[in-house]
Design a protein around this nucleic acid. Structure first.
Lengths: 217, 217
DNA sequence: TAGATTGTTAATCGATTAACAATC
DNA sequence: TAGATTGTTAATCGATTAACAATC
């Protein structure tokens, strides 16, 4: 197929493929079919083939996909074949937790700087990185060529931080604050909000009879 | 409208509505239109009206939605008008961070127990909760009527933990481990995987000329 | 060769959006 | 009343899935 505009749904599945392919590679599995991939990842095999076909003909008819080759291709598509520098803003509990999450590292994503607005925190060390004050944000982003920002500040500060990141030249933001950030269209924002995740889970709890919500069936 | 099967997309937007409505309520705003809601939340007003109409006629033509009334309704729909007890498995950095995330609390979701498989951690205190050993998991879940589990253990342990949670009677799981969990269909699982979030963000970085990926335009 | 599996088209399904009568 | 805004139907858009010829 090639080209076309790729939908976000497709892009979001690529890292999932990559993760399982890495696992296969570790187990020295050489080849995998869309069927097996689908079974393992709870996805339709046709969807997987279609997703991959957007980017090229990576498989072989009758055989399947070469694991190593596909890993290489997906890494390239996701731009993980180069180091991506990441900045983390907000050295609270969550920021702390994310900072020593090395899962990023093996895929070339690296948190290279941490910032916090709270003065007493500035200068302390988190995972070999010295927490910097917000004044240095722009300079550091430029110096290290940082391209992605992770926001783990309280919700009221999130928009301000986003604005600063954007004006400093960041291209994409992963936002953990429970708020909808406004940004120009060329800035990509993903929201990772477990409050809404958890609340939407509650919907699916089964309350049996009790009040049955009036329109049960 | 009423009834129909509600899609997950709709359910996932409800907590977002709720959050902003709570903010309006705090600011003592009495009424809000789908238009204003849409603007603030980056959603189509028609979609918001449709989402809400699945559950009842909550608005008034020509007026909009009564903020307090809508909050009450959404909280009921999401079952947040009763306390939902949550268990956290995995007392590592992330688990630690989540455990003192009181945002849950104000919406009636409460982490009432924490478990970890690592013996030296058992017995230590995290946010007033004593970390318990996995042997006590089932008993505690039953005793406290815990209905939702949060998994923050390493990926290799996640499926085991999920199995244990499920056999102990948990109804829904929020999984932070980077792996696809298998579970019977009546168990609701949400995956909160920031590794894939972050990796999919990298796709949208702009590499300008450099190699242009062969099929740029 | 026979069996397996891709890439891709066509069919289906579902979700979003536009439009508007009803009505506050 | 005139203006605003809902609830809902119909239109659109997009994503998923089935099916199958090509081919390893």
């Amino acid at each position: 197929m090639k080209s076309d505009k790729i939908s976000e749904a497709v892009v979001r599945r690529l890292p999932v493929y990559l993760r399982y392919l890495n696992e296969l590679h570790l187990r020295e599995v050489a080849t995998v079919s869309s069927q097996e991939l689908g079974q393992k990842l709870d996805l339709n095999p046709a969807q997987i083939r279609k997703d991959l076909a957007y980017f090229g003909d990576f498989g072989r008819k009758g055989i399947g996909y070469d694991v190593s080759y596909l890993i290489e291709k997906i890494r390239h598509i996701l731009k993980l074949d180069q180091q991506i520098n990441v900045v983390l803003v907000g050295a609270g509990n969550l920021g702390h937790a994310l900072s020593n999450y090395n899962a990023f590292l093996k895929d070339n994503m690296k948190i290279v700087a941490i910032f916090d607005a709270y003065t007493p925190k500035v200068g302390t060390k988190i995972n070999n990185l010295v927490v910097q004050s917000m004044e240095e944000l722009t300079a550091t982003i430029k110096e290290f060529g940082i391209r992605i920002g992770i926001i783990t500040v309280p919700d009221v500060e999130a928009q301000d931080v986003a604005d600063k990141l954007i004006s400093s030249g960041i291209e994409a933001i992963l936002n953990f604050a429970p708020t909808i950030l406004k940004a120009p269209p060329h800035i990509r924002i993903h929201t990772a909000d477990f409050t809404t995740d958890l609340q939407s889970l509650a919907y699916y709890l089964d309350n049996g009879k009790e009040d049955a919500d009036h329109d049960e069936a």
